[in-house]
Design a protein around this nucleic acid. Structure first.
Length: 655
RNA sequence: GGGCCCGUAGCUCAGCCAGGAUAGAGCGCUGGCCUCCUAAGCCAGUGGUCGGGGGUUCAAAUCCCCCCGGGCCCGCCA
């Protein structure tokens, strides 16, 4: 755990933890977290809750404290003093000694980094995977921010990470946009360029209009068949609602498309043509094959452009249709048919999930622990194939899960998918378990996150009622430009714009990462556009401030550092806080909890800003003390910089 | 009906998994700080029956049970 390039604080914690683990038998990782986070200042820099170990060890707090502090290893640690109070062993570190060691490391070109995991794995992180029918909205942005940040954290921790985007081009939604463009008779990429739009934005509109018109046509058919007044009334209400949506969509017509769609959709067969496109595409038949692919590709181009603004990149783009055409899905279905869990349910081919639970899961304690099923929770059989022979999403997703393991020779596959798909993901893992893919089933992790809502409503791409990520970025950027100009009146336009762009990106990514994934967020544009405290830009600003100080100060003379300067209360506390970065980042990676890193960085920035106000660096007359303070700034800056990079928040040297 | 998630200051959220030392930030509100390293900042003040009720424990925001409120899921959709 401790390598020669570990900073002295992290190394000290590691040693102390080892000592305690030896005396108590507790897990090192759990102790590290307890010890390194005293609840309040005044309780030491490290704090050992002795009472907690009483149950396991039977040792009285004073006795255990004596054993720990009497250990020869403990005596060699940079400890200034310690005391036993209220069942705690509170330890004050010898911060000047730590600062001295740190200065020595820096002078030799040392770089701070996240401690490497003792058990590196090969991990696939699949995220975003938005359907290629519309631009990314804030819901996708949460997925993207979480997924990309997880990938960065895991990779920094020493795992091999593979980032994949699943292009879901098989299915009804894509067929609907394709139908729309077929009627318009235009190429989405060319047409979007002509209208000065992004192709995904154009497609999103075409999708919403086509979908709504189809909905109305289908409802009208039902209305004719319906006999009861009650039923007729409810159908009529739905139609009225859709008509309203349609009217709103019409006002966003990029130019002469609306009427063409309105007339063309019924004439071309409406819903039946959509079904036909779907069927023929899944079989890889022309011209539908080229039509659908061309549109999906155009939309992806728009999506990719947005993603690159967010500094998100993928190692692979996996087309769902390729899995079907290459008969991977077919082979999986064949395998299922031979399985003893194959069944027919509601007249369709299916996998008997309840039986897998009874006969496999309940006899496999490890599997039961990894695939947790709520007690009393009924999971229905999983239907594999539609009556018309086309496949279902979950079936294809099973084939895809296996594909991901295979492609990267992965130990673990993390799927960043909304919490609304929990049941489907559970079914998928159980089905894989039943088909004999135990390793894959147990190592597929559904990293679920809650939806993003708009104040008072849920986003709906079917109705074109979404807040696109692009529009949020633009609004943020516009605000940021004003702020940057204010502070840099003489700077040139390009520089200002580039900085504002990074501020916008930082603001979006940070807001989406800082609250835990389990909490539903209401996305308030006004609040998101705020650039003040507790935001990404606040952290960027703090980093830039630290950078500015060091720039003015010039290169640090590490040999001249007066380490005793770090005895002063604010300085010693700030140095230790900054040095908590490696442990914090490692824990955030292991827990897959980016929000923990986010709140650590905010606390560090707060502490730095507070100190900055009170204790001048450059104007410090005493040379040794000045270098000591510069070392402090350097350490804070490194922690902030590394932290921001892990969160995908762009680092700015000036803003 | 069943299941999962959430409920902490007026608002947005940490803390809960691994129970312990006076429950923390930010926004808001009140008052102060730029001849001085970026005021996107700092300082001081304001503000909490930790949804409610039981239980376990020397100790509960944290663990267990019940209830209430909100969201989501239970499709030959994805």
């Amino acid at each position: 755990m401790t390598s020669p390039d570990t900073d002295p604080y992290t190394a000290t914690v590691a040693s102390l933890v080892r000592i305690i683990a030896g005396k108590t038998g507790y897990d090192e990782e759990k102790i590290a977290w307890l010890v390194a986070t005293p609840s309040k200042p005044g309780y030491g820099d490290l704090s050992v809750p002795l009472v907690r170990f009483r149950r396991a060890t039977g040792k009285a707090p004073e006795e255990l404290a004596g054993e720990i502090t009497g250990d020869p290893q403990f005596q060699s640690l940079p400890v200034e003093k310690y005391e036993v109070v209220n069942g705690y062993l509170n330890i004050w570190l010898d911060v000047p000694r730590i600062a001295g060691i740190l200065a020595g490391l820096y002078s030799k070109g040392w770089e701070m980094r996240v401690p490497q995991t003792p058990s590196p794995k090969r991990i696939v992180v699949e995220h975003t995977s938005a359907n290629p029918i519309h631009p990314l909205h804030m819901g996708h942005a949460r997925n993207t921010s979480i997924g990309d940040t997880l990938a960065r954290l895991l990779s920094a921790r020493g795992h091999s990470v593979n980032r994949r985007y699943y292009v879901d081009d098989v299915g009804k939604q894509v067929a609907i946009v394709a139908f729309g463009f077929e009627i318009l008779g235009v190429d989405p990429l060319e047409e979007a360029r002509k209208k000065g739009m992004k192709p995904d934005a154009l497609a999103g509109w075409v999708y919403a209009v086509t979908h709504t018109i189809l909905e109305i046509l289908e409802a009208k058919e039902k209305l004719e068949e319906a006999e009861e007044a009650e039923e007729r009334k409810s159908i009529q209400e739905k139609i009225d609602d859709s008509m309203n949506t349609l009217a709103q969509l019409k006002s966003g017509d990029p130019g002469g498309y609306f009427d063409k769609l309105l007339e063309g959709i019924p004439r071309a067969g409406g819903p039946s043509r959509v079904r036909e496109i779907m069927l023929r595409y899944e079989r890889g038949l022309e011209p539908e094959k080229s039509l659908v692919r061309r549109i999906a590709k155009a939309v992806l181009e728009g999506i990719r452009e947005t993603l690159s603004r967010l500094q998100v990149e993928f190692d692979a783009w996996d087309w769902e249709s390729d899995l079907v055409w290459s008969s991977r899905v077919g082979r999986l279905i064949e395998l299922a048919r031979k399985s003893r869990f194959y069944t027919v349910w509601k007249g369709a081919e299916a996998i008997d999930i309840p039986r897998i639970i009874r006969e496999v899961l309940s006899r496999d304690p490890e599997a039961r622990a990894r695939i947790r099923i709520p007690k009393g929770f009924e999971i229905p059989p999983l239907i594999l194939v539609r009556s018309d022979g086309t496949t279902l999403y979950t079936t294809r997703d099973m084939a895809y899960t296996l594909y991901k393991f295979e492609q990267f020779n992965a130990d673990e596959v993390v799927n960043v998918i909304g919490a609304d798909q929990r049941l489907a993901q559970l079914q998928l893992r159980l089905a894989l378990l039943g088909l004999g893919f135990r390793r894959e089933a147990l190592n597929t992790i559904h990293y679920d996150y809650e939806i993003v809502r708009l104040p008072g409503m849920r986003m709906s791409s079917r109705r074109g009622r979404i807040v696109t990520l692009d529009s949020i970025l633009e609004q943020l950027k516009a605000r940021a430009i004003v702020e940057v100009e204010k502070r840099n009146p003489t700077a040139d336009k390009d520089w200002i714009e580039a900085v504002a762009e990074k501020i916008a990106v930082g603001a979006v990514r940070f807001t989406l990462i800082r609250t835990s994934a389990k909490r539903p967020v209401v996305f308030d544009v006004k609040r998101a556009v705020d650039l003040e405290e507790n935001t990404g830009p606040y952290l960027q600003y703090t980093y830039a401030r630290a950078h500015g100080i060091l720039e003015k100060h010039g290169s640090i003379d590490y040999g001249a550092v007066d380490a005793q300067g770090c005895k002063e209360e604010k300085r010693r506390s700030l140095l230790l806080s900054a040095l908590r970065f490696p442990l914090t980042a490692a824990k955030a990676a292991d827990d897959m909890a980016p929000e923990d890193l986010a709140s650590y960085l905010l606390r560090l920035a707060d502490e730095f800003n507070s100190w900055y106000q009170a204790d001048p660096v450059i104007r410090e007359p005493d040379k040794g003390l000045r270098e000591c303070k510069a070392l402090l700034v350097r350490t804070v800056m490194d922690s902030l910089g590394h932290g921001l990079r892990l969160l995908g928040v762009p680092v700015l040297e000036r803003m």
